[in-house]
Design a protein around this nucleic acid. Structure first.
Lengths: 374, 374
DNA sequence: GCCGGGCATGAAACCGGTTACACGAATGTT
DNA sequence: AACATTCGTGTAACCGGTTTCATGCCCGGC
């Protein structure tokens, strides 16, 4: 049976009412009308302009609170070309940074800092998901993104040039194949590689090998450079068969270890260029009946939370994610505010954290450090 | 020396030129003019309207490509109230979901799916960062967010009601203290808890204990419910001192294990309600000279990548992150497109993955499973 | 008492898409 | 042949802030 009253209320409004969210959100003009001022004055209050009489300002601010006024970012963006959004570009699904523990800390610190500066991060991916309108450069242009943070650029990214043409400020972490138009943030990979080599020499290891990250990436090359140079300085060889390529992820750590164990002279120390690979290395060695650190010492890179939780706890190079994230945020915000700023290159020192996987720390020390975990 | 020509070009334009990004981005109206059509027609092509003659459409599409036209989202948002943004709400810094491996997979799958549907995720945090304009509800209203994904709502969130009033579609994962206005996605925690209990009984353990997650959270309560019920069904006791509270993170796993070991009758099996806690549990047991699984069997929850890399590989409950992420995305997009949709509650089954920490799998099986890692 | 200047405020155009409505041409109906 | 309908397209208002320029006021100086 059709209802008796033929005049149906406006459907969307009725639905809204039914769900209880018919609260009208005022516009700037309505707010201005209520306050008996012009839209321009309200806008000035919103933007903290000096040119407003204090009592007028207070009256408007009070009314904003009372009406629960929130300015519409889209309108402001349309007018000013500033969106308050910063794009964080993740790489392809094949190497999901988001799943790499190291990047999480970096990202959280970064997010926190840019939020304080009034920006919000929007997550995009370098991966092309079929249709062209899913390319990140297109998305980021649509959204009028104010700045871009790149997590581990890889050389083959054909869109980098497209991105450069937009003129949007860019900060890249551990960049490879990105021009000087982008700021760069990185750990001191050369010094870090050297510190690992020196440690392994100091504890008396004779046959020192390494499983690298993706060979074409900057962190991988630079760590190897410092590592090899320090070994040479100590009068040690680094034969080619002791350098096996990995990709930073766990599986390649297993494969690399297997490969090293087939050598006529297997190493007595392995430097894996990520903690994920190092942990896989320990696991593989133990499966083969080898003891860590007695038979083979293992060193990782990153100092992810898990590093101290594996058995034995992992000696590793700590990257200062808080500083890295903070600097990335500060640099990007500075570049947004002053477009003439020359993009800097910042290098952050690392710390070698010695634990049991190289025989370095006692059980008591380590138990204490575990309690530092959140 | 000042340059001879006194008339300085427009400063911003000059800077842009100097950096090489003076490329002019056309507007819809300019594009329309070039194509000898009205803005309305271009807009119709953009939005896939049927009412355009095919040859006109082609001409416009070709010109879009040639001029590298990208529509400005802000203008469309202003007009349609749809921003193409979906907010992902992380909790406070005290419990950084982003660092919890389980959420990464969920988030990546979610991101991937909503991206295909034309949305991009914006990261917000429940934490109030000082000033009021950093509250997430304000941010999300500013940005005209189309939908919200909540990761692990906690009961004390005072802003939930503010959020509800906005009427924005919400999907919450493992929700606690959120009303029926939000869709809920969760693993079948009761069945999962029961499957763990049954497994531990089946392998003949006598003194079965558990370290829970945050006691006030839904997953923690539900897993305990299933666990206790299944133990009772098998005629086993679950004395109160065998239930110690944790918080899903590693440290609480250590503390909980220590606590269990001080009991007059320490357990011979421990169910930790997250892999992070379970791994900390194994580590702690080994430090105390206890063997896993011979002396104490350990079961975790989540099946994070590390679960199979620790020694011994961890028996755990696998949450189907791909399905969880996909369902969250599909549900949210559906709710955005049809605001009348009743918010569903979806429960996804889990799988018990038996590995060596309960003595379950052989070395060979496990080595194979490790190779499944990406 | 008149004038210049600083200050608080207002009027109106503008940012770039969207869309309701109008309109002419082509097609179909009787 | 007259008329209704559908189709393709254009006109213009609108979304909600921002910003330039104008204006009116009050003040101090001469």
């Amino acid at each position: 049976m059709p209802p008796l009253d033929v005049v149906a209320p406006d459907p969307p409004a009725r639905r809204a009412k039914a769900r209880g969210y018919n609260r009208h959100v005022p516009t700037l003009r309505e707010l201005a009308a209520v306050c008996n001022v012009s839209p321009a004055t309200v806008s000035r209050v919103l933007n903290g302009s000096e040119r407003v009489r204090p009592e007028t300002r207070e009256r408007i601010l009070a009314m904003m609170r009372e009406l629960d006024y929130v300015p519409t970012r889209a309108a402001r963006t349309l007018s000013t070309k500033e969106s308050g959004l910063i794009a964080v570009i993740l790489a392809t699904a094949a190497h999901p940074e988001l799943e790499h523990p190291f990047f999480q800390g970096l990202l959280e610190q970064f997010r926190h800092r840019i939020c304080e500066a009034g920006y919000d991060p929007i997550l995009l991916t370098g991966e092309a998901l079929g249709a062209g309108d899913q390319y990140y450069v297109r998305r980021l242009r649509m959204h009028n993104v104010d700045g871009v943070l790149f997590l581990s650029v890889r050389g083959e990214d054909v869109e980098i040039d497209e991105l450069r043409k937009t003129g949007i400020p860019i900060v890249a972490f551990d960049p490879e194949g990105i021009g000087p138009f982008a700021a760069r943030i990185q750990s001191d990979n050369v010094a870090a590689g050297a510190s690992v080599a020196e440690h392994l020499v100091a504890i008396g290891r004779q046959r020192i090998a390494t499983i690298t990250g993706l060979p074409e990436t900057a962190p991988s090359r630079l760590r190897l450079e410092g590592f090899a140079r320090a070994l040479a300085a100590a009068g040690r060889e680094l034969p080619p068969e002791y350098v096996v390529p990995g990709d930073f992820y766990a599986t390649s750590g297993m494969a690399g270890t297997e490969q090293l164990l087939t050598l006529p002279e297997p190493p007595d120390a392995i430097f894996a260029m990520s903690d994920l690979m190092a942990i896989a290395t320990i696991q593989t060695l133990q499966r083969r009946g080898l003891r860590v650190p007695e038979d083979v010492a293992v060193v990782g890179f990153d100092d992810i939370r898990f590093a101290r939780l594996v058995t034995p706890p992992l000696t590793t190079v700590r990257q200062d994610v808080d500083t890295l994230g903070r600097l990335a945020a500060e640099t990007l915000v500075a570049m947004i505010r002053d477009r003439d700023l020359e993009p800097p290159t910042l290098t952050v020192p690392t710390t070698l954290v010695v634990r049991e996987s190289t025989g370095g720390s006692t059980l008591e020390e380590d138990a204490r450090s575990v309690l530092d975990l959140l």
